[in-house]
């Protein structure tokens, strides 16, 4: 038994990465970032607002949270709808109470089906970023590139039309991309994406698109649904992260605390008190700047 000789050849074994999408860079060696008003930590909340067709698609892969039982999967279809009808409005009220502005990663289907939700987001001063067509709109290298281009441009066109403002940001379902995605997003006029989790501050791809890392570990999905920890533990972990980043920021410049939220997870009645208390605790912390993705992007760009 032996492996093909090419398995022990390393054509990309060289200084830097084995790809040319973005340059290698060490966070602590960069010029420190200064957030507005001397703030230390930009707390960036991103809510994913998703519509799951009851007819799931496995191509190129089935989205996290999608239908699971044999057709018709009422339990998951309606539980996800609960997030949009009920959980998301609990979150909007909580954000208003704590005076927090957030980014909402929105499926185009949400805008088409529930334009009232779009108005409520914009009236409250939140940012809308594009988040594919609906939860069948997943991206991977196995999707033909022309289908991917169509999915991206359609999502943006529908959101722009209904919201009356063009989204500046993009978030792929499950952060999944093909090798073409960053260029397709750039072609479509997107300014930043939040799919790559290899950093804790914004950085620029070689094509000019900015990636603002939306840490997938600091998400309600990862901590509460995947790792099955309580809302209290989740809140404690966010505060531990904040406190560490605040200390680090005093020596090394502005830091970011990304919090990825899902209405059908964090917006349940028995979790909301812990979440509202977390918002209050973060608001009371020294140095906290509740920022939308576009605010972080503008501040980052002004310092480039």
């Amino acid at each position: 038994m032996s492996l093909d000789p090419s398995y022990l050849e390393y054509p990309n074994r060289r200084l830097g990465y084995d790809h040319d999408m973005f340059p290698y860079s060490v966070m602590e060696e960069r010029k420190p970032l200064a957030w507005p008003d001397g703030k230390t930590v930009a707390t960036w909340m991103v809510v994913s607002l998703e519509w799951f067709p009851i007819t799931p698609s496995d191509k190129p892969f089935k989205a996290p949270g999608h239908m699971q039982t044999a057709y018709p999967d009422y339990r998951h279809y309606t539980s996800r709808e609960y997030g949009t009808r009920v959980g998301f409005y609990r979150l909007l009220d909580a954000f208003a109470k704590a005076d927090v502005k957030v980014s909402v990663a929105t499926n185009a289907a949400i805008a088409q089906r529930y334009p009232q939700v779009i108005r409520d987001i914009l009236d409250a001063g939140h940012e809308i970023i594009a988040h594919s067509t609906d939860m069948n709109g997943t991206i991977a290298s196995s999707l033909p590139v022309e289908e991917e281009r169509k999915l991206i441009t359609e999502s943006i066109a529908i959101l722009s039309d209904i919201a009356g403002v063009k989204p500046r940001g993009w978030h792929s379902i499950a952060r999944s991309q093909s090798f073409a995605t960053m260029d397709l997003l750039k072609d479509a006029g997107i300014e930043y994406c939040c799919d790559w989790v290899n950093d804790e501050l914004p950085y620029v791809f070689n094509n000019g698109l900015v990636n603002i890392p939306l840490n997938h570990e600091l998400s309600d999905r990862q901590i509460i649904t995947v790792q099955q920890q309580s809302a209290d533990s989740y809140a404690q972990q966010m505060l531990d992260a904040y406190d560490w980043l605040h200390t680090e920021a005093q020596a090394h410049g502005g830091r970011m605390l990304p919090m990825h939220l899902t209405p059908y997870i964090i917006g349940l009645p028995y979790r909301m008190d812990a979440f509202e208390q977390l918002l209050a605790d973060l608001k009371a912390r020294d140095g906290n700047w509740f920022a939308r993705g576009c605010d972080i992007l503008d501040s980052f760009r002004s310092q480039m």
Partner: peptide
Amino acid sequence: AKPHPDVVGQSHRDHANRVSHWR
């Protein structure tokens, strides 16, 4: 697990060499 690039799988690990090794 995913067709390349597995963005989360790979970039999560790349976090080590940009940020968290030093921490």
